[in-house]
Amino acid sequence: MARATGGFTDLRQVEAGVLNVGYVDAGPPDGDAVILLHGWPYDIHSFADVVPLLTAAGQRVVVPYLRGYGTTRFLSADTMRNGEPAAMGLDLIALMDALNIDTAKLAGFDWGARTADVVAALWPERCRGLVSVSGYLIDGQKSGTVPLPPKAEFAWWYQYYFATERGREGYDKNRRDFAKLIWHTASPRWTFDDATFDRSAVALDNPDHVDIVIHNYRWRLALADGEPQYAEIEERLAAKPKITVPSISLEGDANGAPHLEPTVYGKQFAGPYEHRTVGGGVGHNLPQEAPQAFADAVLEV
């Protein structure tokens, strides 16, 4: 397992639910399981420097590509390329079942944090502890239609771009330039090099990537429907269920992506809970920018 300069060298594949999932499985097989979940537009290499810290502490660490990223593929061409939160939550449950992991610590950022939040809230018996960058990210379609203050709306510019067919075409044609722009704006003080970006940008070449991203953001604005089999789960999530498992929320002091203050979402954590702000100019991709702080939270939660 290489460090940040080379990335992960041992990638595995497993059929789980509707997907064939690409994932890293590092550390002792009998160690306590930790599952790390990346966001958009990033990939598993956000955790390249976190994984060695966790495996050195005896943890078994699983890092999957989300649907629409890297080597993860749908088993059927007929399956809807669905980006709604319930689908991603069930992807995680299916992966845990496929790998015979009954319970694990779940940790992530962006889409990955939301997915971890979903499982922690609805299936707490599968989650031994939670580390979530930007805290509680569960929401429903109805609240996504409520207007925000102008400054907040401005921060979500790409969501509205993706609502148009021009946005879909533009993102498809310019995936890497788009991703690099988001990396810079979401982490304005992170000085990543071209090799670091290129290593992750390959994951965006997935044939389902654009469909998943566009559906995700359109669904949030109630501009796209989900699938009927997820409706009951989405109703439960729209009610904003409390998270009762031991949890730590993290926030970088220079996060340029849209996010709420912990004073807003802290009440959603009903179990043992702590918030940590990570200083030093850390942005949205917190595990890659501050791997030690992220790993410490995973080990301590």
Rank of each mutant, 00 (worst) to 15 (best):
A203D: 07
A203Q: 12
A203H: 02
A203T: 07
A203Y: 04
A203K: 01
A203V: 02
L204V: 11
L204R: 05
L204H: 11
L204A: 14
L204I: 10
D205E: 13
D205Q: 00
D205G: 06
N206R: 02
N206D: 07
N206W: 02
N206A: 13
N206P: 09
P207H: 03
P207F: 02
P207R: 03
P207L: 01
P207E: 06
D208E: 08
D208W: 07
D208C: 01
V210Y: 11
V210I: 13
V210W: 12
V210E: 11
V210M: 13
V210N: 14
D211Q: 15
I212G: 08
I212C: 08
I212K: 03
I212L: 14
I212W: 01
I212T: 10
I214K: 10
I214F: 07
I214Y: 15
I214S: 03
I214Q: 15
I214H: 15
H215S: 12
N216S: 11
N216L: 11
N216E: 14
Y217A: 01
Y217T: 12
Y217F: 15
R218L: 09
R218G: 06
R218H: 10
R218N: 09
R218A: 03
R218P: 02
R218S: 00
R218T: 12
W219F: 14
W219N: 13
W219T: 00
W219M: 08
W219R: 09
R220K: 15
R220P: 00
R220S: 07
L221A: 08
L221M: 15
L221K: 11
A222W: 05
A222Q: 15
A222T: 03
A222F: 01
L223F: 10
L223A: 15
L223C: 01
L223T: 10
L223G: 11
L223M: 15
A224D: 14
A224I: 00
D225G: 05
D225L: 10
D225N: 10
D225F: 03
D225R: 04
G226N: 02
G226F: 03
G226K: 06
G226T: 09
G226S: 02
E227L: 05
E227N: 13
E227I: 08
P228V: 02
P228E: 01
P228F: 00
P228L: 09
Q229V: 05
Q229F: 00
Q229N: 09
Q229I: 06
Y230E: 12
Y230M: 13
Y230P: 06
Y230G: 09
Y230S: 12
A231F: 04
A231W: 02
A231K: 06
A231R: 00
A231Q: 00
E232I: 08
E232N: 03
E232D: 15
I233Y: 04
I233Q: 11
E234D: 13
E234T: 03
E234V: 00
E234C: 02
E235S: 05
E235G: 10
E235V: 08
E235M: 00
E235C: 04
E235D: 12
R236Q: 14
R236A: 11
L237G: 11
L237A: 11
L237C: 02
A238T: 13
A238Y: 01
A238F: 00
A238H: 13
A238S: 15
A239Y: 04
A239L: 01
K240P: 06
K240Y: 14
K240N: 12
K240F: 14
K240C: 03
